[in-house]
Design a protein around this nucleic acid. Structure first.
Length: 804
RNA sequence: GCGGAUGUGGCGGAAUGGCAGACGCAGUAGACUCAAAAUCUACCGGGGGUGACUUCGUGCGGGUUCAAGUCCCGCCAUCCGCACCA
């Protein structure tokens, strides 16, 4: 018996070795491959086994690509601005920079336990002034291009975090971070004009090798719709009210109109008799939070007393106000066609407004409608000159017809809103703008960046809409970069998404003092080929990053306009019963003990073995014994066979090529859990053979060890050395397989009678159909009765005799 | 309400329309041991049969096919996303 597997000894040995001689080097590699993890927030809680999974997946993939001959870009960094560090500062009085640095140190130590091939020379940290200099620089560039602008408007406000939020950060009316009900607050905000990129963000999704789910979520978030704006004159007034509709075909059926309570004309339109009710309604709507507004299922509304004129047929339509119309979508006003829209139907029914059907369903006018008919399918009725047209055709043509008549225009709309970019908090990048009484908002000159985040006495958010920075007079008071007169600094900071929107570009040139990234390095190493992370950023980080990349492409910083070619969302690791791991639930499994007891290689493999990488998996500690036993068996097999020195047999050659084939195919299709079972299956087969012939030939052993290297790099390195190689295993190339060599001479196939499996037969691999069927019949023997109706032979698989 | 994903032994899961349950965990029996652990061997979906075998079985109900976990239609459950966007 040779030396038993001792993970402690060999893992320590190879870590030290790799520290001195990194395995990922650029010499003579054909191409780069950039495999990126979503960088972590350096939380004080440390890593659990769920975090490990993503990092293991990306590392296995990186090492596989390395063996395929690529030079790997595989960096790691820290998304370190944000509220937890700031809240900790408020509670403990420790400067966020200090607690962040400590957390980074701890998490980095934990990440190093994974033994991934991260290139730590590339490390970035979003809170490093040399990094956020460029985050600010991008903002200045956007300002100069008119993409960053200020606007006073009611924005989403989290009363608990005491800061404004972007639309993307509000989930079901609640703060994405803390879960508090989001309210509205009127604030002057910095906004980024992401809507200018709406079409490109939508269209370019086609180019991406991303999960359909994420593409769909982004498509829906952008929410492009096609329709028309129609101008309704107001009776007794000069102004018109413009509505947006996606169903201009139903214009004849518009029997009323609804304005959002926030609409500019809402108050003005109220007649003497209605004024009191209208003002009350507007006031009440303004007091409702997002959550209230969402939860009110019953429609409410108030009549203004004023009428508009349907520009197509001159009909008088009453103008109502209701909070089911959103002020910031379309024009904040809609025409209502109760016969063909669920919401309008509900409203009309409640307030006794006439319902006029304009599309015949199945050629019929519906008597006593009980619900709206919302499909654009049927013939137009009650629609004047449009009568008899097909509604689906008219729906497309109506915008042009309306435009010709001069009563409206064809238009498109988006759900996507501009990005509210100011945060009234301390721990973020200061927005590099100076407000001058004469020159207005002036950007800090690029050569003066970074604009450092100053130290404050109190990190406490003020809650007034100003950030804690506003309290530092010596920082706030400055001079205008433009005219030199006294001026004040912008005191809001950027959202946490600012740094993460472009960090992946910086890794490859993280020490560049002159440029965000040099042209040469960008060309050589970018963009990201594979991006691995959770699905929770589908419309946040992943949308913002695409926007930033397109902008940087437009101003010539990079020559590509999509940051991540391929995206993989790994599933979450949960505790028992699918409960998310969290400190408060007490179900967090730390990798530290497992690494100590079983070794890094075992944990790496078990992380993959728990289930398909794209699905959530429940963690069960006991399962790791299985891979640990496997690694021991594999170790013993190689060590024992090494001594035996047997020569290669035809059977072994066949098995070897099949192993390479199976492992490669499963890896390529990202079925990482079955790659691990594949290793176990082949090792079991090899063990059986070794028992008979005393060992396994050296070529097969070497091949298996190379295949195992991305998964269990320590053991593979040690075994590779034990097999007598002085060059490292990661200098080897991934083995090829030969389909011919995989073939059997004889094969076992199933024999079915009437589609039911009865027995098996062994036949020559190249057996003819006739011979196979004859053999099948013979095997069925007495069971085969009645007349044979059909005989089926699927080569290499099955013989089926159909008899009655 | 709309959209998506998932549903297979005690458990995690595997199956280009072709022998369901690979691989592993847990379990049972045996070997080794003074004993235990580790390791090794065998068994390990349900019913029936001493047995060779037989029959049922992939959430439920239909359908297509020589053949369905897999394809089609209709449901149910769980999870996720969106949610008055006109």
């Amino acid at each position: 018996m040779s030396v038993p597997y001792n993970h402690k000894v060999i893992e320590k040995k190879w870590r030290e070795n790799w520290e001195k001689n990194p395995v990922n080097v650029n010499d003579g590699k054909k191409e780069k491959y950039y495999c990126l993890d979503m960088f972590p927030y350096p939380s004080g809680n440390g890593l659990h086994v769920g975090h490990w999974r993503g990092y293991v997946i990306s590392d296995v993939w990186s090492r596989y690509k390395m063996l395929k001959g690529y030079y790997i870009i595989h960096p790691m960094g820290w998304d370190a601005f944000g509220l937890p560090a700031e809240n900790y500062a408020i509670k403990m009085g420790v400067h966020p920079a200090k607690s962040t640095a400590e957390n980074v140190k701890n998490i980095k130590r934990q990440i190093k336990e994974i033994a991934a091939v991260y290139d730590w020379d590339m490390e970035v940290n979003t809170t490093d002034p040399e990094f956020y200099k460029w985050t600010q620089w991008i903002f200045v560039k956007m300002f100069k291009e008119g993409l960053a602008y200020q606007k006073e408007m009611p924005i989403n406000w989290c009363p608990s975090c005491k800061t404004g939020l972007a639309n993307e950060e509000v989930v079901n009316g609640k703060c994405e971070r803390c879960g508090a009900d989001v309210t509205k607050k009127n604030l002057k905000q910095w906004m980024l004009r992401i809507t200018k990129y709406a079409d490109r963000l939508l269209d370019d999704l086609d180019k991406l090798d991303w999960p359909e789910k994420v593409k769909k979520m982004q498509t829906d978030w952008i929410g492009k719709s096609y329709g028309a704006e129609v101008d309704f004159p107001v009776e007794g007034r000069e102004d018109k009210i413009t509505v947006y509709t996606t169903r201009p075909d139903t214009l004849h059926g518009a029997t009323f109109m609804v304005l959002a309570p926030e609409h500019a004309l809402a108050k003005e339109l109220a007649t003497e008799e209605c004024r009191e009710a209208v003002e009350k309604y507007i006031y009440e709507a303004s007091m409702k939070s997002n959550v209230d507004r969402l939860q009110d299922k019953e429609k409410t509304g108030v009549f203004t007393g004023t009428y508009a004129i349907n520009p197509l047929n001159g009909a008088k339509v009453p103008i109502w106000l209701s909070d089911y119309v959103l002020a910031d979508y379309g024009t904040g006003a809609i025409m209502c066609v109760p016969a063909h829209d669920d919401r309008d139907f509900e409203f009309a029914t409640k307030f006794n407004i006439p319902i006029i059907q304009v599309i015949a369903k199945d050629g019929q006018q519906i008597e006593n409608m009980t619900e709206a008919y919302t499909e654009a399918a049927g013939t137009m009725i009650n629609s004047g000159e449009w009568n008899g047209m097909e509604s689906s055709v008219l729906k497309k043509e109506a915008p042009m017809m309306i435009e010709k008549k001069g009563i409206g225009r064809k238009t498109t709309n988006y759900k996507l809103r501009d990005w509210v970019f100011s945060r009234q908090r301390y721990w973020g990048e200061p927005i590099p703008i100076v407000h001058c009484p004469d020159c207005g908002a002036v950007p800090v000159p690029e050569e003066e960046l970074p604009l450092l985040l100053p130290k404050v006495d109190s990190y406490q958010p003020t809650g007034t809409g100003e950030s804690p920075l506003a309290a530092i007079d010596e920082w706030v008071n400055t001079t205008c970069p433009c005219c030199g007169k006294p001026a004040k600094r912008e005191t809001n900071t950027m959202p946490q998404w600012a740094g993460s929107s472009w960090y992946f570009l910086r890794y490859v040139d993280n020490k560049n003092k002159e440029e965000l990234v040099s042209k040469e390095k960008a060309q050589k190493y970018l963009p990201v080929d594979m991006y691995i992370g959770g699905v929770e950023h589908a419309v946040l980080h992943l949308l913002y990053s695409r926007f930033y990349t397109k902008f940087l492409n437009d101003i010539g910083v990079v020559d590509f306009d999509e940051p991540f070619i391929k995206l993989f969302n790994q599933g979450m690791i949960t505790g028992k019963n699918g409960i998310k791991m969290s400190k408060s639930k007490g179900n967090v499994v730390s990798p530290d003990d497992l690494v100590r007891d079983y070794g890094c290689d075992s944990l790496r493999m078990y992380e993959l073995f728990v289930g398909p990488p794209e699905l959530d998996s429940e963690w069960d500690d006991r399962g790791i014994d299985g891979v640990y036993r496997f690694l021991n068996r594999f170790w013993n097999l190689v060590m024992d066979s090494k001594e035996a020195n047997v020569s290669e047999t035809k059977d072994m050659l066949k098995l070897r090529h099949r192993m390479v084939h199976d492992i490669t195919q499963r890896l390529e299709s990202f079925s990482l859990n079955t790659v691990i079972s594949g290793f176990m299956e082949y090792t079991n087969k090899f063990q059986d053979i070794a028992k008979k012939q005393g060992g396994i030939d050296k070529t097969t052993l070497e091949t298996a060890v190379v295949l195992l290297a991305p998964f269990a790099p320590h053991m593979a390195s040690e075994l590779w050395e034990a097999l007598g190689h002085e060059d490292g295993i990661f200098n080897q190339t991934w083995p090829d397989y030969d389909e011919e060599a995989m073939k059997d001479d004889e094969i076992e196939i199933a024999v079915q009678l009437n589609g039911k499996m009865k027995t098996t037969i062994t036949v020559a691999a190249d057996v003819s159909k006739e011979d196979a069927i004859a053999a099948g019949k013979a095997a069925l023997g007495d069971k085969l009765t009645g007349n044979i109706i059909k005989e089926i032979y699927v080569p290499g698989r099955i013989v089926n005799i159909v008899a009655k």
